[in-house]
């Protein structure tokens, strides 16, 4: 078990190097710092001097991989790759275009992101599983058919619609909750309720339908027949035997996204004005702040790999058949 986790952790290193090289290629090779400067400065202000000045200000005035002007190790370290890409392994992300330290921003913004994403995740999981179990319990009846149709309809609606409709009706028309914004501490609750509600509702369609399929697959298996042959009531068969097996794919599928909850949700946070990492990312994309985008790519990849490892571990917890080797 320990050896296995250690091996998975070691495997994460080449993955992160791959991610790093890929972003480096995208951001510095395909798209040179000169291009970035031009884009940032806007067509009107592009002069060679302005470009140079912009590059100096942002620390992009070095060679990409090898600095022949420097001496010794500095030949390798005083380069864009070392300073802007390799440094991320130490979680040193540098500064954004607004001059603020990206690492600090990430730390302060994780809280609000989690405040939205975690409740959406937990409540969503509970609601979807309950809804799926309800449909499965009444399978092949009109309730089930209606539930499936409802799911298809719900999942055919754009996520943006849920947000806009939620804001319009609940916040603007009925004035139940504020449209957007955030507050520190306990006062944040009233800003959290609406985005969480919207997040949960928009996930029901696909989630409940998927879980229903998982449960139905389990219900067709032989051990369910055995459980019925023991004289167990249908509810016990469903909630004990089927749920226990069905939860294996559901839980492990959920665990992989768990670390990514830190990243928040781009759209939700942006619409509701939550000062989390999602809105940070979206602002960076819209402002073409490459330093922040790069940092978020690395962070996202890191968290994803943590998720993969957690998934493996959670498998060995929920499924006795899995032994990690």
């Amino acid at each position: 078990m320990h050896a296995y986790i250690l091996r998975r952790l070691l495997y994460a290193i080449p993955i992160l190097i791959g991610v790093n090289l890929l972003t480096f290629t995208l951001f510095f090779v395909v798209n040179t710092p000169d291009d970035m400067a031009r884009l940032q400065l806007g067509a009107k202000h592009v002069t060679p001097e302005a470009i140079e000045r912009w590059k100096t200000e942002h620390g992009y005035d070095r060679p990409l991989l090898l600095n022949r002007d420097a001496a010794g190790m500095a030949q390798l370290t005083d380069t864009i790759f070392f300073r802007h890409s390799a440094a991320m392994f130490a979680f040193e992300f540098g500064k954004g275009d607004d001059g603020r330290d990206i690492g600090t921003e990430i730390r302060t913004r994780m809280g609000p992101s989690l405040a939205i994403a975690l409740p959406v995740f937990v409540i969503g999981l509970l609601v979807n599983i309950s809804f799926a179990l309800l449909m499965v319990f009444f399978r092949a009846s009109y309730l089930d058919v209606g539930g499936v149709v409802l799911c298809v309809v719900l999942m055919s609606i754009s996520g943006l619609f849920y947000i806009i409709a939620g804001q319009y009706f609940i916040a603007k028309l009925w004035n139940l909750l504020p449209i957007s914004g955030f507050a520190d501490g306990i006062a944040a609750w009233k800003f959290i309720v609406l985005p969480v509600l919207v997040g949960v509702v928009s996930g029901i369609g696909s989630g409940a339908r998927w879980y229903r399929t998982i449960f139905l697959e389990e219900i067709g298996k032989d051990y369910v027949r055995t459980a019925r042959a023991k004289g167990l009531p249908e509810a016990r068969v469903l909630f004990h035997h089927v749920l226990k097996n069905g939860m294996i794919p559901i839980l492990t599928g959920a665990v992989v996204v768990l670390p990514l909850l830190f990243m928040g949700s781009l759209i939700t946070e942006s619409f509701f004005g939550i000062p989390g990492l999602g809105s940070y990312t979206i602002d960076a994309i819209q402002a073409q702040d490459f330093a922040v985008v790069r940092a978020m790519v690395f962070l996202g990849a890191f968290l994803y790999i943590v998720g993969l490892i957690l998934t493996d571990i959670s498998y060995s917890w929920v499924d006795p058949r899995v032994r990690l080797q």
């Binding site: 298996k221 032989d222 051990y223 027949r225 055995t226 459980a227 042959a229 023991k230 004289g231 167990l232 035997h241 226990k244 097996n245 294996i248 929920v318 499924d319 006795p320 058949r321």
Partner: peptide
């Protein structure tokens, strides 16, 4: 299970694995 009980062919599949 009380009046009559049944044994199935494939015990690997007929027992709940978890």
């Amino acid at each position: 299970g009380g009046g009559m009980a049944m044994i199935f062919q494939e015990p690997m599949l007929a027992l709940n694995p978890v």
